[in-house]
Simulated assay, not measured.
Amino acid sequence: MIIRILAVISFALVFFLQSDVSFAEEIEIDIKGEVVNLTQGVGVGEMVSVALHVSSLDSPRQTQHTFTDSSSSFQFESVLYSPDNLYGLSTIYKGTVYVGDIVIESGSAKFTSLSVYDTSTDDDIIFLSKGSFSITGIDSLNRKISVLELATVSNDSKLTYVQGSGPMDLIRFGIPEGATNFVFDTLIPAAEYIQVDKGFALIASLPPGDHEIMYSYDIPYAGSQSEILKTWRYGAKSASILFPKGMVNLNADFETVNQDTIGEKVYTILESRNIKRGSETSISLTDLPTPKFLDRMSNQFGQMRYEYTGPVGLLLALVAIGTLGIFSTVRLRNRRTSWLAGSSEAQVISDQITELDNLHSENDLDDHLYRDRRDYLVKRLRLISEESEGN
């Protein structure tokens, strides 16, 4: 009898729990808002298209569309709500994509004001509020320097910057000649990039505010010294050059020098402020590592075409036998795994996430800026991990 009663109670609990879950999954909400032109301080009027985006990990993104009415308002009725979904809004106004978040609390969506702006092709309204140049690794065998650059492109006007009709109207960034393995990433909506002379150009509109971009590349070097010329097309209110201590010696005409520990690594940091538009910074690298003879031969032999490995291998064997008595000690001393000096790009980004967390915990960074920058770096770290797994 007791067992039967317990079974009934268990069945009832399961039924009610399932009912609660079903109810939570099937709740419907209304999403309301308006589209406001902040340049003019008025609503945009009627017939402006607004899109609602609903995405989750388990299903493809769903999109609904509606239009503003005469009061610049819009509404999406009876939207299926789940706490596991992400909800966002977007609109296209005068050729620019604008996005906005939807705040949902206690099963109800707050009224959302989606901001848009008039446009300008004058690039004087944009500038770099922050820029950083980081040496992330040095491959001594292939003689390549890995570089990561971060830039915060800012627009403090009340206009959205859009590119003009000429090729020089693009948002351009320079990279050193001979650079390879270029990777670009940004959270700017609908942003793309194209290769241009001496660098790349960002194809995007920039509304008022701060916009983060990140790009990395490898540059070759020949001897123990190299020089990199960094151009600041849009100037920079704050700029920094970072490199791990002990990896290489670096000199630049920046005003301040200090050191900081990021992710258990000591970085040397050069800093400068108020760099003028169009300025150039010469970055001099000395004491670059060079591969030893046997390491270089091993690396070149590994890259050799298959049909040549037999004859060349035999030749190397004959040479080794003829010089065995003289160079046996050297050969034994150099028989070890090649070492690639420097940290990987993933490690550097992990270090920057750690430093960002520390700044936030010390209340040196506001919550919104912290979330934006951390999400940006986590997204980049995930991309690197997926690329590594794919290879």
Rank of each mutant, 00 (worst) to 15 (best):
V35Y: 05
V36F: 11
V36T: 05
V36I: 11
V36P: 02
V36N: 03
N37G: 07
L38S: 08
L38Q: 08
L38C: 05
L38N: 08
T39G: 07
T39Y: 06
T39D: 06
Q40D: 14
Q40T: 10
Q40S: 14
G41I: 00
G41C: 07
G41A: 06
G41H: 09
V42C: 03
V42Y: 11
V42T: 12
V42A: 07
V42I: 12
G43P: 09
V44C: 13
V44T: 13
G45T: 13
E46I: 13
M47C: 01
M47I: 06
V48M: 11
V48F: 10
V48Q: 12
V48D: 07
S49E: 15
S49Y: 10
V50K: 01
V50P: 00
A51G: 02
A51Y: 00
A51T: 02
L52G: 03
H53C: 11
H53S: 15
H53W: 12
V54G: 06
V54H: 05
S55G: 07
S56G: 15
S56N: 13
S56R: 02
L57M: 14
L57S: 15
L57K: 10
D58I: 12
D58Q: 00
D58C: 05
D58H: 01
S59G: 03
S59N: 04
S59E: 07
P60A: 15
R61N: 11
R61E: 15
Q62K: 00
Q62E: 07
T63R: 12
T63K: 12
T63H: 07
T63Q: 13
T63D: 08
H65F: 10
H65L: 09
H65Q: 09
T66Q: 01
T66R: 00
F67S: 06
T68G: 10
D69A: 07
D69H: 10
D69V: 10
D69W: 09
S71K: 14
S72N: 00
S73I: 04
S73D: 11
F74N: 00
Q75H: 14
Q75W: 11
F76H: 09
E77M: 06
E77P: 10
E77Q: 10
E77R: 08
S78H: 14
V79F: 05
V79R: 05
L80F: 01
L80N: 02
Y81G: 02
Y81V: 01
S82C: 06
S82I: 01
P83C: 08
D84N: 04
N85H: 12
N85E: 10
N85A: 07
L86H: 14
Y87K: 05
Y87T: 09
G88N: 05
G88C: 01
L89Q: 02
L89G: 01
S90R: 10
T91Y: 05
I92N: 04
I92K: 01
Y93L: 06
Y93P: 02
T96A: 15
V97G: 04
V97Y: 08
Y98T: 01
V99E: 11
G100P: 01
D101M: 08
D101A: 10
I102P: 02
V103E: 15
V103F: 13
V103A: 14
I104K: 07
I104C: 06
S106I: 02
S106L: 01
G107S: 02
G107C: 05
G107D: 00
G107P: 11
G107L: 04
G107Y: 01
G107N: 02
S108M: 05
K110W: 00
K110Y: 00
F111R: 12
L114M: 15
L114R: 12
L114A: 13
